[in-house]
Computed example of a mutant assay.
Amino acid sequence: MRINEITFTDAVPVDGYGPGFFRVGGSVHTGPMLMYGAGANPWGGLSDEAALLDLVGHVDVLFVGTGAEIFHLPSALRARLEEAGLGVEVMNSPAACRTYNVLLSEGRRVALAVLPV
């Protein structure tokens, strides 16, 4: 087996998560979180559409973590994001964090909006 060290350049990956929190760069963030580039910021959840639309032009894909269980985004929200040119992938939060980290390590232009488990 060949093991390669993962480098994230300027971006910061999700280090871990648990009930109601996410760990990023050694800091604990409680509640919903939005990650893009080198930072993690509080996010207002699915009703905070403006924060998601601000990502347009900066990222190609937005991973939305819906907590412990997967559920569909409101169709109007998904339509506005896709019309703006943002690819949207919805999954539970653990899968969203893992997928975000993998694509981030590949240097991809990705963002993560997650609800806590």
Score class of each variant (00 low, 15 high):
2 R>L: 13
33 M>H: 07
97 C>A: 15
61 V>Y: 04
89 E>H: 04
18 G>W: 09
57 G>W: 00
38 A>Y: 08
48 D>G: 02
6 I>G: 01
18 G>V: 13
72 H>D: 15
117 V>D: 13
37 G>Q: 14
96 A>T: 02
37 G>R: 15
10 D>T: 14
52 L>D: 00
104 L>Q: 10
76 A>W: 05
101 N>M: 07
66 T>S: 06
73 L>T: 05
82 E>A: 08
97 C>H: 07
12 V>A: 10
5 E>M: 11
24 V>N: 01
57 G>K: 00
116 P>K: 06
49 E>Y: 01
37 G>Y: 06
62 L>N: 07
66 T>W: 01
50 A>L: 07
7 T>W: 12
96 A>D: 03
96 A>G: 08
58 H>D: 14
115 L>M: 07
89 E>S: 07
53 L>C: 02
80 R>C: 01
72 H>T: 13
54 D>N: 10
18 G>F: 01
54 D>M: 03
42 P>T: 09
102 V>E: 03
33 M>F: 00
116 P>L: 10
20 G>Y: 03
69 E>M: 12
38 A>C: 04
29 H>M: 12
24 V>R: 08
72 H>M: 11
79 A>S: 13
90 V>C: 02
80 R>P: 04
87 G>D: 02
30 T>K: 12
80 R>S: 01
9 T>H: 14
74 P>I: 06
35 M>Y: 06
95 A>V: 10
83 E>V: 06
14 V>C: 10
110 V>H: 01
16 G>I: 11
106 E>N: 12
41 N>C: 09
39 G>T: 15
31 G>E: 05
20 G>F: 09
106 E>S: 12
58 H>S: 13
45 G>D: 11
73 L>S: 02
16 G>L: 03
112 L>M: 06
51 A>Y: 05
72 H>Q: 12
80 R>E: 00
25 G>T: 12
56 V>I: 00
61 V>A: 09
96 A>R: 03
90 V>R: 02
100 Y>W: 10
85 G>V: 02
35 M>V: 13
30 T>Q: 14
36 Y>V: 14
102 V>N: 01
75 S>W: 06
111 A>M: 09
78 R>C: 02
30 T>E: 15
67 G>D: 00
65 G>W: 00
66 T>D: 04
28 V>M: 14
53 L>R: 06
31 G>Y: 06
42 P>W: 00
79 A>R: 13
62 L>W: 03
77 L>N: 03
17 Y>V: 10
5 E>Y: 14
9 T>E: 15
